[in-house]
Nucleic acid binder design. Structure first.
Length: 653
RNA sequence: GCCGGCGUAGCUCAGUCGGUAGAGCAGCUGAUUCGUAAUCAGCAGGUCACCAGUUCAAGUCUGGUCGCCGGCUCCA
């Protein structure tokens, strides 16, 4: 007999080898058992068919268990594999994990899947689900399993078993018994039977490589998603639609922000309105950084290869650099600002009294990214960062990182953005002393804790030259974008032999903190466009106010209104076309201009404007000066105002 | 870079079996002077991404190049 302890603390004795399901049916409410997908024995996820072989705590896993969805999706991936195996004889299966949004499964097939294949496969999956076939777990002798998969022509599975179960005598396999039995090597667990899988959909196909390595066997990946309830699946699909509507590439064109040309792949043309937005972000960042003690600088765009050899880019990053020749010298267009800033630091004798020295730069960078990775503004070959390097003494690291954290918080609050913080620690391959790393990581942790920032740790994900803190911004529809980064660097000061004179009159090595808050202007603008669905809050809107005269006898007054607004520093556009007011309003609305001022006989005689807001409709008339005042107040609030959320409320309708 | 898909007017798209290219919106011109999401009429707009090839004939078939899209890998 063994003792089973339940979550409520009660316990029972059962014979050794009793299955979880048999125990649950005996000891737990039928309603709970019906909902159960799997179980946790001592916290470890197992199938309901697992046997209880020792004293354990037992908890049934129902859909509200945090691990339930992953298991459910993974089970759906198995269903997909079973369907594909049934429909395409000779197919080889790779792996089929759950992902954040669903699942995928990789296959080796002679011909890539087309959309019609997906329909067929999905239909087969529904058929198998309707048949409610059990997911049976069987422990096979390892030799037998190896032989079985070898005989079935699945060398990838053989390889997996060899790698994952070295030293074991038995391996776990799952079967779905249909006309042809589908067998997969997998640790599980899975839902008890295919009938439990209700709301799933196959979404797309793509190419992938065995183990994600392009030198390995190419495979065809099928992506899908699954939820416990149809309603949740529908919501997810709706969110995909919504995301498509918010695509910054589309909105960027519709709103006249930027464009691309085949002759400059990966480099945007910023149109008038886009440039206004870009500049608004650049100026805002300058206003934030200047009082924080940063000095804006501009360093060369093209450097002799000697610089890149010194920084290490020539050895490690050359493939991603644009190279040019000048006289007989080989030159590289800069892909990062840091090496230039090292030279700038070294251009004068530095005292400890000069530290921290904070250099901020917004000039363009070029990276010759592989053609296949380019896309919209999120991945480009030419971009600018709100980059800065803080040169500090070892003892100033904690304080300086704390200041940067403060800045990040302030900036994201101004945009009304929420974020999550990740601390990435020493990777397997690293430069420098372990003790230095430990110290640096401790400093970063302390700064995060002092700032009251919750963070998660990404073990081993730091840069090879130092640990880092990354910020993932969450947008209006729940997607995350990696933006800000703070990285400690002990290596570059070493490579450039940077020193400052300390209080002891001796040379010392500074530490560099690389940091960016937007990340890159390009990617941040893409984020903002999709976050607001193009409806920028007033302070960012390229055109803040449209003045719409009713008839051309009102043009003179309209021009006066425009003049007053421009004098107050607002970005205004006059629609002086001979069109009906409804037409002008529609256009301004589609351009997502925050305020429309309708002016006709009434307004001209009273010195007022009729205010229409993008989100609130007709707000009635008021004196020009009053409108200017409230508009300026709203601008000053930036994204902290309630109105800044207008982009989101609007999109929900 | 790799795999797959796509490329027709500024945009969204149609174009049958290979037989000399079409719509809506946008644009231009004219008329309309109008009160909170589209006034009417007319006109113009194309090397069917590009380069070869097959064919009496190519937007359509074949090959190559470029670009875009979805992934892989990578990344701000």
């Amino acid at each position: 007999m063994v003792t089973v302890t339940l979550p409520d603390g009660s316990s029972r004795q059962v014979p050794t080898g009793t299955s979880v399901l048999a125990f649950a049916q005996e000891a737990l409410p039928a309603r709970l058992v019906r909902k159960a997908l799997a179980a946790r024995l001592d916290g470890r996820l197992v199938d309901l068919t697992a046997s209880i072989d020792g004293d354990v705590t037992l908890q049934l896993v129902t859909p509200d268990d945090p691990g339930a969805l992953e298991l459910y999706r993974h089970s759906t991936a198995h269903l997909l594999a079973a369907a594909v195996t049934a429909l395409y004889p000779g197919v080889q299966c790779g792996i089929g994990p759950a992902t954040d949004d669903g699942f995928f499964y990789d296959f080796v097939v002679p011909k890539p899947f087309v959309p019609e294949d997906l329909e067929r496969i999905e239909a087969k999956m529904r058929e198998l689900a309707a048949a409610d076939l059990p997911y049976a777990r069987e422990m096979w002798p390892r030799d037998e399993a190896l032989e079985f998969f070898a005989r079935r022509g699945e060398p990838l599975k053989v390889q997996l078993i060899e790698e994952k179960t070295a030293g074991q005598t038995e391996v776990s396999c799952y079967t779905i018994k249909d006309r042809d039995t589908f067998v997969d090597f997998c640790v599980g667990p899975h839902v008890p039977s295919t009938g439990r899988l209700k709301a799933f959909k196959l979404l797309s196909t793509s190419n992938a490589y065995w183990k994600g390595d392009a030198r390995n066997q190419p495979m065809q990946r099928i992506y899908g998603t699954a939820f416990f309830r149809q309603e949740e699946l529908d919501q997810y699909l709706h969110r995909l639609e919504e995301a498509k509507k918010r695509d910054h590439r589309r909105i960027g064109r519709d709103l006249g922000l930027f464009t691309f040309h085949p002759w400059a792949p990966g480099a945007a043309f910023w149109l008038g309105k886009g440039t206004t937005l870009y500049n608004a972000l650049a100026d805002y960042m300058r206003k934030v950084l200047y009082p924080a003690g940063y000095t804006e600088v501009k360093t060369p765009l093209i450097f002799n290869k000697a610089l890149w050899e010194t920084s290490g880019h020539w050895q490690h990053y050359r493939d991603n650099m644009f190279l040019v020749e000048s006289d007989d010298a080989e030159m590289g267009v800069k892909s990062m600002n840091c090496p230039g800033h090292m030279l700038l630091f070294a251009s004068e004798r530095r005292s400890y009294r000069d530290l921290p020295l904070r250099l901020h730069e917004q000039t363009p960078l070029h990276r010759n990214e592989a053609s296949g990775v380019l896309g919209g503004l999120t991945r480009v070959r030419q971009f600018s960062q709100d980059d800065a390097h803080c040169f500090v003494m070892e003892s100033q690291i904690g304080e300086e990182v704390a200041r940067v954290l403060e800045l990040v918080k302030r900036v994201y609050d101004d945009f009304g953005l929420t974020y999550q913080v990740k601390l990435s620690t020493r990777p397997d391959e690293y430069l420098g002393e372990k003790a230095t790393w430990d110290h640096a990581e401790a400093e970063l942790k302390r700064a995060l804790e002092a700032a009251g920032m919750a963070y998660t740790i990404n073990e081993g994900d730091g840069a090879f030259y130092g640990p880092k803190i990354d910020f993932d911004v969450t947008d209006a529809i729940g997607r995350t974008w990696q933006c800000a980064t703070i990285q400690l660097d002990y290596q570059l000061p070493e490579r450039f032999d940077l020193t400052y004179v300390g209080p002891d009159n001796q040379p010392h090595r500074p530490v560099v903190i690389h940091r960016a808050i937007y990340g890159s202007f390009e990617r941040f603008i893409a984020l903002l466009i999709e976050h607001y669905a193009g409806a920028f809050p007033l302070w960012l809107a390229p055109i803040q106010v449209a003045v719409l005269p009713i008839a051309d006898r009102h043009l003179e007054y309209a021009r006066r209104v425009v003049g007053d607004l421009e004098a107050a520093g607002l970005r205004v556009e006059l629609d002086d076309r001979l069109e009906k007011i409804g037409y002008k309003i529609r256009e301004a609305q589609l351009q997502k201009i925050p305020y429309m001022l309708v002016v006709g006989d009434r307004e001209a005689s009273e010195g007022t404007v009729s205010v229409r807001s993008r989100t609130g409709g007709d707000l009635g008339s008021r004196p020009i000066a009053e409108f200017v005042r409230t508009a300026l107040d709203e601008v000053a609030l930036r994204g902290r105002s309630a109105a800044a959320g207008s982009g989101q409320t609007e999109s929900r309708r």
